[in-house]
Design a protein around this nucleic acid. Sequence first.
DNA 1: CTGAAAGCGCTTACAG
DNA 2: CTGAAAGCGCTTACAG
Lengths: 341, 341
Amino acid sequence: MNTKIRNTPNIVEEIAERTGIAVSTVYAILADRKSCFASRKLKERVKKLADELGYRPNYIAVSLKKGKTGTIGLIVSDMNAETTLGRLENMTKIAHKDSYHIFVACSYNNPDLEDELLREFYYRMVDGIVIAPARFGHESKFLSKLIELKFPIVSVTCIENVDIDFVSTDYFAGGYMAGQHLLEMGYTKPGFLGPEITTTAVKERFEGFTKVLVDNGYKIDDVNVVLVRNETNQEIEKGSDKLLETGVDAVFCTNDRIALLFMKKAIQKGKKIPEQMGIIGFDDTEVGRMSLIPLTSIRQKLAEATTQLYESLKKKIQGQNQPCKMFIKPELIVRESTKRR
Amino acid sequence: MNTKIRNTPNIVEEIAERTGIAVSTVYAILADRKSCFASRKLKERVKKLADELGYRPNYIAVSLKKGKTGTIGLIVSDMNAETTLGRLENMTKIAHKDSYHIFVACSYNNPDLEDELLREFYYRMVDGIVIAPARFGHESKFLSKLIELKFPIVSVTCIENVDIDFVSTDYFAGGYMAGQHLLEMGYTKPGFLGPEITTTAVKERFEGFTKVLVDNGYKIDDVNVVLVRNETNQEIEKGSDKLLETGVDAVFCTNDRIALLFMKKAIQKGKKIPEQMGIIGFDDTEVGRMSLIPLTSIRQKLAEATTQLYESLKKKIQGQNQPCKMFIKPELIVRESTKRR
DNA sequence: CTGAAAGCGCTTACAG
DNA sequence: CTGAAAGCGCTTACAG
């Protein structure tokens, strides 16, 4: 009975045969095991043969033996945002130092797909998972199950009703900073433009923004707010028109793209920027930086957040499960679009 | 002698014990093997137990057995470009349909790091590799070795002196289309702005561009060309000034970012766009689309290219090694920055 | 139809 | 110091 169906010729066996030593000795030599006292000459011969025959240690076999795959799964929620690429870059860079490799998959904000991806990563035996959660519908059963199993998993945002560790941008602080900056620049009728408030990240931007206005003597009713149904250009442009009609002299938009579309509309209506209209976005993306009138924005500290997140995940993988719920304040990047003074 | 050091309790063994059947029968049931004629009741009991005990098939063990890991390594050359994210998105999406998962790593255009990443992917037993090659210095020994070994690997660009299969944008055609468009719009003094020509992708853009001008009666010497040392804002702005001084009335830039920086300079110098100055970029990125004066550009057909590349790779993984060297024509996207007529 | 056995390519503990 | 053996968790071919 020979059930041996090799995918490749076994090079280690061949080396053992050719040199007349045991297979396990070959392994010992190739792994530079210190308890291996083969002669220097023999060691060299083995290594040379290995090189000639194109030997590569089978990482899969090692993984099976060690119970660790040296692999981290990253689930992002969309593939458009510059922040996604930033997170990915930071994560691969940091993790590579510890010889981790990164699987990437995207949920497209679809909770069902997210659930499936979590399952797949889990079955593929990744050592840990970093998730940028889908925006809606987090009754994800599998996510809860992973947490219950104490599987190493961390999130880039806080998830409502789910006890997951996270390192998130402090969106409330971001909204507060945006509003404060507009007031400091001397604008007196600040407005808000964004999508309907269905996510915590947007809700907190909004609440931070209104908070600073209230702190400065505004009444909530005095603040002009336009929420658009979705973030298509068309909807945003309609929303911009609507907000412009209210007579605002400054606006905080929930992201840079929305801010730039608003800017275009404002200019079309004859507004001078920043003199007659201050505009501030969120995320500090290249579109804002490259704009003919460079955009003031709130920058998330992605590198710092990713590092913290990674360290937390690494500890979990190593079996130390310290809770980690952390918010990181973003920073204000002042550019032309708000420089009234 | 007990060398059994489990990482986890073996759930399959436990199920076998509890139900009084053999381990291999449990596997047969869990895999829904058709040659398995256990009673329906037994099957259900086994599956329920598996569920309760949190059984997951160990993908690593399966991989070891099958000699395939269901994994593709993607090496990108930088983490800034929108095209990188586009490729990544397309690749994960397509590959996921065949249950492949994607490892992502970045060479940062560093050939040594690229070499290392190729090695790592190879050792990690990925089934295939997709590479966006580092821009310079392709004497990469390991890449050549992989090709020699007929390891499944494909590239997003043609690599000089390396016999690798690829699906690339036809940059020459792109340059040609750009020049043709400027002429058709009635511009008469077209110029070129880009980095020093050290890569094929830039060289071909340039050659396509000059070709169409020559085809239309221009002499090479009549074409104003400014090449900048590197792509920092500062260098590009200096280059823009220099090109503006030559009296060009239109310019083809090797990418959208350069085009927008040039646009800003041209506007500062009082040029009306597109009336007095036509500007065309490359890559059709969001910065160009979102610009106050939307940018005409050349769009790479990334989705199509990635699909072709994936299909070629898949065949290689399956053992059919058909050569695949393919150029895909990009498309012209006309926006405001060249609409003179 | 069921189940014991061999094997995927390694590592580890241990007998000689 | 070397090497045979057992095991990681699965699958496959085959004996009963």
